[in-house]
Each structure stands twice: as structure tokens, then as C-alpha cells.
Amino acid sequence: MSSSKKRPILGVDELSVSFQTSLGEVLAADEVSFRLHEDETLALVGETGCGKSVVASSILQLLPKNAEVHGQVVFEGRDILRSDEREMSHIRGSKIAVIFQNPSMSLNPIIRVGEQVAEPLQVHRGIPRHRSVQMALDHLNRMGLRGDTAIMYPFQFSGGMNQRVMIATSMILSPQIIIADEPTKGLDDALARDVVSEVMKIRDSSGAALLLITHDLQMARDVSDRVAVMYCGQIVEMGSRDDIFENPQHPYTAALLNCLPEKGFQPIPGSSPSMIHSPDGCKFHPRCQKRFERCRLRPPMEVLAGTKGASERQVRCWLR
């Protein structure tokens, strides 16, 4: 997909999120900045616990109350981190929708599937119940859930079907942005592939921009236009998918790609650092093979020379 002329529709600027816990302050997101452009898919990848989901949740202010959030999230010319709950409720589900991991838990166990899919129509558009359920049924049919699925309950569905129900719910108002938070986490391989194809279908049919949060590099490669790699709360590298996968600049990205099956499953030495006492300087340097004196200082996010717009390449490493 050529993406040079696309306008950004979501701007995340220096987003930091910390939680006060009994063990100390957890810095789950540390000055995360990225742009999401119209009609593109940006994959935010990283190991479990690197803070990807926190970034996703903070965009829509879905974090628990003990979270302390700094920075800006610019949408439609406004910083929506400063919006109150009422304003956010108008954005959620209608302009920016979320697909959670664990679809079976995300659906209400005692409400019929049709009602749940229809709910955004009722809440945002004020469409009466009967008509909205009819529309939800049509919508579910288009998603490949046929027959009388609308009168079923989530416990009668498989995890994959529930994932489709959830995707249908998020899509029903044609939002401008869809945030998919680990849609394949905990699913077996076949099901994960199903979900990937579902996600690709959304991307191609809806024209929505997709922010895909995933630990699954294969999925990121199959689906995304651009990739941002997160490590310990920071984005360490960002660029077009091909650049990232073929020519990683950050040692962490390179190490992560070496974990892929075709690169021979080489594990990264050491283990992920604690988010409470994360290393000073470059957060990856204790595990980095190429570290040198300067890595004790915090490296800035730098734009590589000669790249800009959607193909812009950013790396947070002293080697560049």
C-alpha cells in the first residue's frame, strides 16, 4: 500500500503511563509517540508486558483509575486525554472502536448476541431496539455468522465465533479507527489464522485505520503497513513493515526477529527487565550484544535521514 499522501488521524505524543503499586511506581509507557494515518494498519509489537496494551487502553481512557497518564492523544484536532467521560463515551465505539483479547469474557454471558452487537446502534444512534437487532443480524450475516445467531448466547459459541461477534460489534458503526488489542492472544494456531484473515478483511473493507497491538510478529507482518516495536514501555523502532522486517536498525528489533521460526528460534539473552526499576539509559542495553559506554545514557528517538511521511523511519539507539 502506498502511503505517502495519507493524513494522520490519530497522533500520540509523548504518552507516559504509570501506576502506583505497593511495590513502587510502574512505568508502563514511557514517552510513546506515533501517528496513525488514514486507511493504514500500524502494528505495535513487543513482548508480553512491554506496555503495548496500556498504550491501547490509554487512547480511549480505558485504564483503571490508579493510572497516571501524561502526554497527548490528538484526535479530530483535540487532545482526547483531556476529554471528560461523557465526551469519551461519544467517541468510544462510534469513532474509535476496540477489539479486546479474550472475546468470550468480553461479551456479556446472559445477553443475546444480537442485542450486544446492536447496542452501539442504540447508544450512539438512538435506533429503537427491534430495528437495531435486525440491523445487527444483517451485520452478523455479512460477517459470516448465519442463521439465528442473533438469538444465541455467547456461551453457545466457540471462541472464534465470539471473536467475530466482537469484531462485528466494533465495526457496526464504521469507526474511523479500530484498535485491536492482542486479538490472537491465547488462541490456537488455526483460530489465530482465522482472526488474522478477519482482521485483514476489516482493514480492506472498512477503510478504517487499524492499530494492531500484538506480540505475534507473523501477524504483524501479514497485516500491517507500518510497525512500531516496543520494549519496556518505549517504542524503540518504527518504520514501514518491509524496512522493519528486512532491515532492522535497533538491536532489539533484530533480536526479536531472530526469535522467528525461519531465523531459527534464537532467544534473546537475559530476561525482560522489571517495569518498576527499569535500567537507566537505553533500556535494552543490559541485554544488548552491541552495547558501549554511551548506552548508559538515555538515547533519543531519532528520525533516520532521508525518510519522512508514512515511510519515516525512527530508531532509539546510540548506534544510529
Binding site: L62, S89, H90, G93, S94, F100, E119, V123, S170
Partner: peptide
């Protein structure tokens, strides 16, 4: 949480 993400208010 998902209900909130769908845009339901309080």
C-alpha cells in the same frame, strides 16, 4: 470494560 469501550456511559 467492553461495554464501556462500546460507548456506554457510566
Amino acid at each position: 470494560a467492553f461495554a464501556r469501550a462500546k460507548g456506554l456511559y457510566d
